[in-house]
Computed example of a mutant assay.
Amino acid sequence: MIKEIKTLSIIIPAYNEGPTIHFILDKLKKVALLNNIEKEIIIVNDCSKDNTEEAIKTYISNNPELNIQYYKHEVNKGKGAALHTGIQKATGEYLIIQDADLEYDPEEYNLLLKPVLDGFADVVYGSRFMGGNPHRILFFWHTIGNKFLTFLSNMFTNLNLTDMETCYKLFDTKIIQSIQLQEKRFGFEPEVTAKVSRIPKIRIYEVGISYYGRTYEEGKKIGWKDGFRAIYCILKYGMLKL
């Protein structure tokens, strides 16, 4: 059964992305979605200390044809908190999470949309560890850590994901808005995965995507402390199912 979708919300949490955020917005501007789906871009500035707000407002002013909604946290709360704000503000039928950096390619939104448009999926994860798309070669231990966290998450959710920690996650907006999310930082990924997996008859798909990773010098923010928090969240929210 072919599903018709009219609008897609794209949620961008932003923290100190002033020098680069216009690049990702330029990419979003050029993306042509399948079936002429309209884009709603929601940017949540998590109290950046650089010129992120100025860069966003300038971009909005120079591109009035784009449907960009801008929100700002008055105190820094974390990526997860910015996502909570964006999710609750979304009005599209489906929503996708997009980091403000250049690690993921918006041209691949259509890869995530296809299982939904074909009538098979409610949730789609974009995996960096499957398929033949380009991947920048960077950190061995990050890769091992991501695969370990995915393995641990799968043990509790009984899913067979290859990349639980991926940024690219596509959700039915009504479904994700109905979930009470708590994690303020990078614990969002294991928490939302655990809670989505418990929804009766939920249809979760995974597709291969590209990955253009950043070094810490280029602005990468996640660290080893976030890895330990992810383990805690997998155990905390996974145990709720047992």
Rank of each mutant, 00 (worst) to 15 (best):
K3D: 02
E4M: 13
I5Y: 01
I5H: 07
I5L: 15
K6F: 03
I10S: 02
I12W: 00
I12V: 13
P13M: 02
P13A: 09
A14V: 11
G18A: 10
G18P: 08
G18Y: 14
T20M: 04
T20S: 03
I21Q: 02
I21Y: 06
F23M: 11
F23A: 10
I24G: 06
K27H: 12
K30Q: 14
K30R: 14
V31F: 02
A32W: 03
L33I: 09
N35L: 01
K39D: 04
E40G: 11
I41M: 09
I42S: 00
V44T: 10
D46K: 07
K49N: 09
K49Y: 06
N51F: 13
E53A: 11
E54R: 09
K57D: 13
T58G: 13
Y59L: 10
N62Y: 06
N63G: 12
N63K: 13
N63A: 05
N67R: 03
Q69M: 05
Y71R: 12
Y71P: 00
H73W: 08
V75T: 15
K79A: 10
A81Q: 04
K89V: 02
A90W: 00
A90T: 01
G92L: 05
E93T: 05
Y94L: 10
L95W: 02
I97K: 00
Q98K: 03
A100E: 03
D101N: 14
D101T: 08
D101E: 13
E103C: 14
Y104N: 11
D105P: 02
E107D: 14
L111V: 00
L111T: 11
L112E: 09
L117R: 12
D118H: 12
A121N: 02
G126W: 08
R128V: 01
P134N: 13
H135G: 10
R136E: 05
I137P: 00
I137N: 08
I137S: 11
F139E: 13
W141I: 10
H142T: 12
H142V: 13
I144S: 14
F148R: 09
L149H: 05
F151H: 12
M155D: 09
N158T: 07
N160R: 06
T162R: 02
T162H: 12
T162G: 03
E165G: 12
T166V: 13
D172K: 08
D172S: 08
K174T: 14
S178H: 08
I179M: 05
I179P: 06
Q180N: 14
L181C: 10
K184Y: 07
K184Q: 12
R185V: 13
R185C: 05
F186D: 03
G187W: 05
G187Q: 08
F188M: 07
E191W: 02
V192S: 11
V192F: 11
T193W: 06
V196L: 14
V196F: 01
S197R: 03
I199P: 02
I202P: 05
I202D: 03
I202C: 00
Y205G: 06
E206I: 14
V207R: 09
V207D: 07
G208D: 07
G213R: 04
T215R: 00
T215S: 12
E217N: 15
E218S: 09
K220W: 08
W224P: 11
F228L: 15
F228M: 15
A230Y: 00
I231N: 03
Y232S: 13
I234N: 03
G238A: 10
M239A: 15
M239L: 15
K241L: 11
L242I: 15
L242A: 05
